[in-house]
């Protein structure tokens, strides 16, 4: 079946590869900067590039509708887009404080730690931690392309983890599984990334057809 995926456009640079990747997965892709228009999408993608606080600010017009549709719509956050879905982040926050996120996936975003170069930039391996449709065709040891300085510790929400100065969530999802995000860029991660986009689009198709494999 056809799936309408809406990519939320709140001024995040290059959406071209993301659109092409989703189209290759069989989706009909719309880019929208109108919060009302995203209400009816079969699935939403929340991209993100740059600093957490600034992305939070720029995406503000979408927050209410995102919280609302996340109740029953598949949502995929990418890179900072994943971080926005989490509870909070320490990026650009005063010492000891945090900047609040959308809290659709419970978890805290903190700076990459350990004796490693920051940003974490390049191809790193995934470890699949649990089943989810987005990792249906992903195996432990597959490579994904990362570019980020902040991340969330691996935990309950982690679908796939990666190790860079400690284990962190490369893919995280909420309990029901419909709100999911990747810290890497699937649209830049070759065949592995395309497999993740494929998995998300198939998941959205199933979800919208009422065959929700993860529904509670």
């Amino acid at each position: 079946m056809n799936v309408d995926v809406t990519v939320i456009d709140y001024g995040v640079g290059n959406l071209r590869s993301l659109r092409r990747g989703l189209e290759r997965a069989g989706a009909t892709v719309t880019e929208s900067s109108d919060p009302d228009a995203i209400r009816t999408a079969d699935a939403l993608v929340l991209p993100g590039v740059g600093a957490f606080e600034e992305c939070m600010r720029n995406s503000r017009p979408f927050h209410d509708v995102l919280r609302e549709v996340a109740e029953d719509t598949p949502v995929l956050g990418i890179c900072v887009g994943l971080q926005l879905l989490m509870t909070d982040s320490t990026e650009d926050a005063p010492e000891g404080d945090v900047v609040e996120g959308l809290d659709l996936v419970e978890g805290h975003v903190t700076r990459v730690a350990g004796d490693v170069k920051v940003p974490h930039m390049g191809w790193n391996t995934l470890t699949v931690e649990r089943d989810h449709p987005v990792v249906a065709d992903v195996e432990t040891g597959d490579y994904a392309y990362f570019v980020h300085s902040y991340r969330t510790d691996a935990g309950e929400h982690t679908v796939a983890s990666c190790d860079y100065g400690g284990g962190f969530a490369a893919i995280a999802a909420n309990e029901r599984g419909n709100v999911v995000g990747t810290q890497f860029h699937p649209e830049k991660s070759g065949d592995t990334g395309l497999a993740v986009l494929d998995g998300f689009v198939s998941f959205a198709a199933d979800w919208n057809a009422g065959r929700t494999p993860l529904a509670d």
Binding site: G13, N14, R16, S17, R20, G21, Y145, V147, H185, E187, K188, S189, G190, D191, G193, L194
Partner: peptide, 28 residues
């Protein structure tokens, strides 16, 4: 960018913020 799903860096003649924006928008 439409065919190759790996990162693409583009250089040459970039002098302004608009040049950066235009290049990223093209798919870099």
């Amino acid at each position: 960018a439409d065919e190759c799903f790996i990162p693409l860096t583009v250089g040459g003649g970039i002098r302004t913020r608009d040049d950066i924006k235009e290049t990223l928008r093209a798919g870099a």
